[in-house]
Design a protein around this nucleic acid. Structure first.
Lengths: 223, 223
DNA sequence: AAAATGAATAATGAATGCAAAATGCAAAGG
DNA sequence: CCTTTGCATTTTGCATTCATTATTCATTTT
């Protein structure tokens, strides 16, 4: 018998969780926005029950804040939260890098090199969007090679919380160059399979990312 | 005006999340158990709506598995999951230790010493329960001193997933001694404020904990 | 007797309804 | 004119209801 792909069966709540995550990530719903249940119900054509289930899940993920009888708001990320979250993400990336070094074959490294090279090319060309996409791909690839699904999932969930901010403002050229430099050093450590060095660089890289987010938050405050 | 503590307002769903977490932690609900909604509704005297919201949250936390139209089960922890989760927890504890060293005052260290000493005394007396309690307190205290709430919350959520297993079987005397030795070395690194050393020990300590859980899982399989 | 079928039963998914709480706003009072 | 109070409206929390999907078990079939 041909193995047919299983029929995907999803609850409305699950679907809604993903849709809402998407809306928050791409800025349709912005940090601080009030979420009114009847409004979203109409938008998606569902009743309040599955929507409320979805909101509870998003609240557990930290993407929205729920206050009893007062409804939901898209979570704002505070400078304090950045100072808490990014060191954690640094550790997770450091672990991913370490596992990656222990498991990657030549093909894996070659793929990372290719992605890195293309990323740098886009930087040189000043092409922000494709640069960002490849940057993300490099990190995702490292997690994939690391082969720890729970680690990847955890990192992803923390990343989303900060992503809502980042698309809202642009990096300075200096910060951009700094990020490229970090990535060069990451690649060097991967080539050398130097776990200790990669560990340090990853955490430093995330420290820099935190700095960028702080600058963005300041921009938003002023502008 | 005297600042009165705010009146605590909780939804039934929130209450249920905590109650159910408790039931799972203390083994009233065991890994693999089917969760039947009407049953729990009767038990807690609530309708299915808030219960279902709670189940969605617990599923997001990884404590239960939900399959569409087929209901919920308390999540089983697999050896593979242990191999994924414990290295992550090791990194989180390592970060907590590092932050702790950077922030602890003499009073903090003294408190840790006191807890440690009492813990060792219970070990010598072979008193398992109070030992376990103090062990937990030591780790909690380190996270408290570290002063990163998100880190503590994340660690806690990973810890709960494994706790459901651990109460089910007992450590061997060798493993117990090993844990004590780890803790001695943790205290030594804290006294010396040696972050690098603490980092290594914490990760090793969690590696040992993972080994213990593997042994417990094997016991459960056989027995 | 074992496997397959189908009807009865029970559980889940989602919508609706209702009571309690919050919000907005106009009128009354300072 | 600004603040406060009370009422109408809106929104949320939860229970109930209805429809759909599993599960169980007796019956049939091989």
């Amino acid at each position: 018998m041909l193995d047919s792909p299983l029929i995907e069966r999803r609850s409305l709540a699950t679907e809604l969780v993903e849709r809402l995550r998407g809306l928050i990530q791409e800025g349709q719903l912005r940090p601080g926005d009030k979420i009114v249940e009847p409004e979203l119900c109409e938008r998606f054509g569902v009743s309040r029950t599955p929507l409320r289930e979805a909101l509870k899940v998003l609240a557990a993920e930290g993407l929205i804040d729920l206050s009893p009888n007062r409804g939901a708001r898209v979570a704002r990320i505070s400078p304090e939260a950045v100072e808490e979250l990014f060191p954690i993400m640094g550790m997770l990336e450091a672990l991913a890098g370490e596992l990656c070094i222990g498991r990657m074959g030549t093909a894996d490294l070659a793929l990372l090199e290719a992605l890195h090279t293309r990323m740098v090319a886009h930087w040189r060309a000043g092409e922000w969007a494709p640069y960002g996409r490849l940057n993300r791909q490099v990190h995702e690839e490292i997690f994939r090679i690391a082969g720890n699904g729970a680690l990847a999932a955890l990192y992803q969930s923390l990343l989303i919380r900060t992503h809502a901010i980042r698309f809202m403002a642009r990096k300075t050229p200096e910060r951009w160059a700094e990020a490229i430099d970090d990535h060069e050093r990451i690649m060097a450590a991967l080539r050398a399979r130097d776990a200790a060095a990669l560990n340090l660089i990853m955490r430093e890289h995330l420290r820099h990312k935190a700095d960028v987010v702080h600058e963005v938050l300041k921009q938003l405050d002023e502008g």
